[in-house]
Design a protein around this nucleic acid. Structure first.
Lengths: 338, 338
DNA sequence: GTCAAAAGGTGAAACGTTTCGGTGTGTCGA
DNA sequence: TCGACACACCGAAACGTTTCACCTTTTGAC
């Protein structure tokens, strides 16, 4: 039904190979290029990317594998990646695995079978075998946000430890000694690092850590809400609270509202991510922000480089710095208990 | 390098056609199926979906084309679509066009050239020619959230008019007569419908409309912020405000905060979308919520049906109902000016 | 005018699958 | 025992492209 390169060749009265060469940017005689162009228009010819891919074994498609699409961090990742890769002619195949490690493996295999040219992967557990197989087939993978242990792989992430360090340090300097943290599950890379920052700054300032002020959430809003409720309504509750991702920040704020705690009078607060939203709260939130655009852009450019065959410095581990945006939710504590 | 179906056939000592038939669920002798299975494992054979697609001209890929990925509505759309289609064996190719009508057309063409089997499309302007061409090639398209005029196409959207009607009616019943609306740009289908609902309820209750209380925003937060600032700080400002999407709801709330207006004492407020977030505000927001899951599920199932070749009832126009969630941001107005 | 080199043109083979038409084997009733 | 009929098997052709290896034309220095 649709016109093929043969039809174009016939219509333009040139050889197939000539048309192919022209389509791929090769040099052909001026008059031939004109006739080919005419033929293409006349026949409404579209190149069949399937046939081309079969021959070249390049699909010009990259897979993006994420734990979830339903959070703001993932969304901006996808959006940015798509736009950068598109410019380079690549399509973006999306998979999310709903934070489910069974599904994680399945979708990794699925993408692998789909003949992608490369992959951006934000692991949950981190499916090492699947990853190695992909790499074994010559498909470059760039990890984003989270590293996987025992695995040689390009990785772009943020300096989680110092992100926490800086946030908690700010609270300490303001005089807080009982600082609560609602963190992600300790099985997740980022959460573990963020926790370490919390501990380290306590150590550096010789402040003892109260385990009651530490909770492992699920990076999800509802759980964080309940955990915040519990922690903040217990006796000896913290004078400041630090929450380590956006969804949990919302959950914690909801709890704070429900408990009628005033920020920063009753409780100092530092949240995470989403600058835009932080400003609509009253008072505006002090938060840790990730350089999302830069992370994604770096990862995408690295992947493009690898897909071109450039293996310089493999495996690269790139760490980006977060920023602590100081607004109005941190103040001196009311009572100074050591 | 990788094993082909020929290798499998040779290893299993059967014909190529037999292997192919078996792989596609056809009947083969028991002993043959065992030997083929063995061969597949032994050679680590993976079917080459490219070659298969070339032959069958089915790519098992659907395109998803959206104005933007950076808002909560789009995100849940993508996530749901991906999961439903994946179950049916389809991959999801994502494109967003950054609310840019030039890019919209370009990406539509891009997806068309990529030999997708179907498409979910949330139009901005609505690129009719591109759409018709796709359909002409036998590729089903399901529009979501927004219809396109003069275009025969399956469409799944919400009853925008009655969404607004119901929200504004609620305000009217509570006694409000000066009700502000911050709406999307009137070039956008949903915004136009939502506006019509605003007018109609005013008409039905014989309340005259003050054009000063109507603003066309951009469905974006920053613009809405400024527009809300202006409207609410003008004299004769409204006693109630209705905002017609999520991002603008945030922007308006930010303005309300900055103006130190108390909700609902100084101003009644109805927002849009995102139930989860609505609850963390203080007081919890009265909002209009869309049945996002149902919309997407309906659209995805419809697309699957079309891709199977079932053309029953084409073109279908499916409208879903919104719900008005009444919380604590609507009260009687302080002063009753007619 | 000659000839080598350069530039450009060409069909056929190959990528790995599905499917068409044809062949072989086994079963079963008469 | 024979024919008829399923049933499953099988190789070859085809999908539309790229690329190899070869061929033709043009160019320009002598």
């Amino acid at each position: 039904m649709a016109a093929t390169i043969k039809d174009v060749a016939k219509h333009a009265d040139v050889g197939i190979a000539t048309v192919s060469k022209y389509l791929n940017g090769g040099k052909v005689l001026g008059k031939n290029s004109i006739r080919i162009d005419e033929a293409i228009v006349a026949l409404n010819y579209k190149i069949n990317s399937l046939a081309r891919s079969l021959k070249t074994s390049k699909t010009m498609t990259v897979g993006v594998l994420l734990p979830s699409l339903e959070n703001i961090f993932s969304t901006s990742i996808v959006s940015k990646i798509e736009n950068i890769l598109q410019e380079a002619g690549y399509s973006t195949l999306i998979c999310d695995f709903q934070e489910d490690i069974i599904l994680e493996k399945k979708k990794l295999v699925f993408l692998g079978d789909r003949q992608i040219d490369g992959m951006i992967y934000m692991p949950l557990k981190g499916c090492v075998e699947g990853l190695k197989q992909l790499q074994g087939n010559g498909i470059p993978v760039v990890l984003i946000d989270r590293a996987i242990k025992n695995c040689e792989c390009d990785t772009v992430l943020i300096d989680n430890l110092n992100a926490s360090y800086e946030a908690v340090e700010h609270l300490i300097i303001m005089g807080h000694r009982r600082i609560g943290i609602i963190n992600g599950p300790d099985t997740i890379f980022t959460a573990e690092e963020r926790m370490r920052g919390y501990y380290r700054v306590h150590e550096d300032y010789r402040i003892s850590v109260d385990q009651k002020l530490i909770v492992c959430g699920d990076y999800r809003m509802d759980i964080a809400y309940e955990q915040a409720m519990k922690m903040l309504s217990a006796k000896n509750s913290p004078t400041a609270l630090y929450v380590t991702n956006y969804e949990m920040t919302l959950g914690a704020l909801m709890a704070i509202n429900d408990l009628n705690l005033k920020i920063p009078e009753d409780l100092s607060f530092i949240g995470f991510d989403n600058l835009a939203l932080a400003n609509i709260f009253k008072p505006p939130l002090t938060i840790v922000v990730q350089p999302t655009s830069e992370i994604v852009e770096t990862a995408a450019r690295l992947l493009l480089k690898r897909m071109k065959g450039n293996q310089d410095g493999f495996p690269e581990l790139i760490r980006m710095k977060t920023r602590l945006i100081k607004k109005n939710t941190v103040d001196k504590p009311k009572t100074l208990d050591s």
